[in-house]
Amino acid sequence: MKTTRDCLIFLGQLAFTLLVAAFLIVPAVLSMLAGITSNYFLGVKSGLTLQWVLQVWELYHDTIFRSFLIAFSTLAVTLAVGIPAAYALHLRNDRVSRAVEEIITLPLAIPGLAIALALLLTYGGFSDFRRSWLFILVGHAIFTLPFMVRSVMAVFAAIDVKTLDEGAASLGASPWRRFCDVIVPNARPGILAGSLMVVTLSLGEFNLTWMLHTPLTKTLPVGLADSYASMRLEVASAYTLVFFIMIIPLLTAMQVFAGYRGAASGPKR
């Protein structure tokens, strides 16, 4: 009796889950399929081809490399700034530090366009800087920093990093040694989670980047928008396909790496 009912409930839940998954996955599959279809208006029966993918590669491969360059540079900046910032904010834990934390988080609430406009107004006059990819890097760093700071601070709060720090200090370690030997290694799960988010967000960021880019500093998402607006549908779809091929292995690798390192040496909760 009971098992039959459990079985029905399970099947119902499975069907619902599959339905929701299909609702989300089917468009993605269709879009990727369009990228390798000879003529989308005639459908798949017109034949499959890689010509659109090759065309995308020829036209836009620089945007792909630039996106990765910016994503990993953003990661480097947020690591260098975010971890010490999280450490300092956690140790201080007073009204000033909470205010700073809120200010760091503000870019999440402000539309990327507004941030970009502010950057343009302020630094647009420095034309060499404005024309280089570093200008986009600044925008990305501002936008992604809160994710790094927050996820590192969450780990600090969970492992009582203040006492660990005091423990290392009592053993004679200078603040820098403490930071390298104790703080960073124990914050690793948060650092990895933050890194994953920063890279993902930077790779996919459009709002800010669209305002900040120049024709010579297009990133992958900006290139995507460009191709959607001005190329035939198959090219735009092929571009999406390339984007997927680039980003899914990267994200999977980072996730696996994070999970492995986290399980191997992160603090057990």
């Binding site: 492992i159 009582d160 006492t163 660990l164 005091e166 423990g167 290392a168 030997d181 104790v182 290694p185 124990n186 690793r188 040496s265 992160g266 603090p267 057990k268």
Partner: peptide, 10 residues
Amino acid sequence: VFQSYALFPN
């Protein structure tokens, strides 16, 4: 020696 020991998990 701390109440929570403050041993380094890493």
